[in-house]
Design a protein around this nucleic acid. Structure first.
Length: 324
DNA sequence: AACGCGTGGGT
DNA sequence: TACCCAAGCGT
């Protein structure tokens, strides 16, 4: 744990995060500098003691490995990502090695993580990083955002977790924790990148070191303590500061997001088609795809969309394969 | 802004 | 059973 670069005399105990005086965020009138949010120190202490030891958190994890983990974690649970992450990096330890293989191999290796388009984009990332960035994952925000499949969350996650830079990471966990602890609402409202970044920025510590750890810590809290359905407030390090708790845990009264169905959708059909292609060692015939879904029109629509997405290659001989 | 995009475990 | 959910992105 490094120290902050303020002029304030350091009052430290061991390697613990700086012990602040617990006042709410605001402006220190005497010094004229912004004070730190009261959430920070308890959260950093809790994270230092309680963080799960996930493979992408090991010291020495490369920026490329962090990027791989972040893309895999886009909408896929941690426990399913872990083995896939190890296998992927075992095979492609750097962008150049992945770029030297085919996109189809990336899709096959992706297996059943879901949303196979991510595999395609991660492969395209490897190509871009190899060709445009000399094999080095960029740390510049705009350069990261220009990479395929890298959006507002992933770009900042790479800055924070790969390069240990101060960056306002916002994911669904962080949105929920801020909604509760800061705004006293049971759940976050509809996502808005601008609003969400502003909210996170207002509690983000000033130094690179405390900032990136804070991002990791608040995300971890949302994942394991401040859970969406059943928060474990009895073991929450932010309970004393939590606005939601202080307000008596009011129930959410905002608009309810409409959950998306899955059974019977094109997505399900696409999943079955991709399953056939992943399992096959080479190109497959149309008949092998026909059997996955009885509705011919819907099956054809799903197949066409996979071709349009670049996930399936129609061959001149009429067969179909993963992309080259 | 709202929707399409996989998968499998939990309730 | 039929939902809900899990470190988003692209359009």
């Amino acid at each position: 744990m490094t120290t902050r670069s303020t002029s304030r005399p350091a009052a430290r105990s061991g390697s613990r995060p700086t012990s602040d005086d617990g006042r709410a965020a605001g402006v220190d009138r005497a010094a004229g500098v912004a004070s730190e949010s009261a959430l920070v120190t308890p959260l950093l202490s809790w994270f230092a003691a309680e963080a799960r030891s996930l493979p992408w958190r090991a010291s020495g994890t490369s920026p490329w490995a962090v990027l791989v983990s972040e893309v895999m974690l886009q909408q896929t649970p941690v426990n399913r990502v872990e083995p896939a992450y190890r296998a992927w990096l075992d095979r492609w330890p750097d962008p150049a090695s992945l770029a030297g293989d085919s996109a189809g191999e990336a899709v096959r290796m992706w297996g059943k993580l879901g949303y196979p388009g991510r595999a395609l984009r991660l492969h395209a990332c490897a190509v871009a990083i190899t060709d445009v960035h000399a094999g080095v994952v960029p740390s510049d925000l705009d350069a990261l955002l220009a990479l395929p499949g890298v959006g507002a969350y992933t770009a900042r996650a790479v800055q924070a977790f790969a390069y240990h830079r101060r960056s306002a990471v916002v994911d669904t966990n962080i949105r929920r924790v801020l909604a509760r602890a800061v705004h006293g609402s049971g759940q976050a409202g509809p996502p808005s990148t601008t609003r969400d970044l502003t909210a996170m920025e207002s509690v983000l510590p000033a130094s690179d070191d405390r900032a990136w750890r804070f991002c990791a810590a608040i995300m971890e809290l949302g994942a394991v303590v401040c859970a969406a359905a059943k928060p474990s407030c009895d073991r929450c390090p932010l309970a004393p500061q939590c606005a939601w708790r202080a307000a008596g845990y009011p129930t959410y009264d905002g608009p309810v997001a409409r959950g998306q169905r899955f059974a019977g959708t094109d997505r399900q059909v696409r999943g079955r088609l991709m399953d056939v292609l992943r399992a096959a060692s080479g190109p497959v015939r149309q008949e092998a795809l026909d059997v996955v879904w009885p509705d011919v029109m819907q099956r054809q629509r799903a197949q066409d969309s996979l071709v349009a997405d670049g996930l399936v290659d129609p061959l001149p001989d009429g067969r179909f394969a993963l992309p080259t």
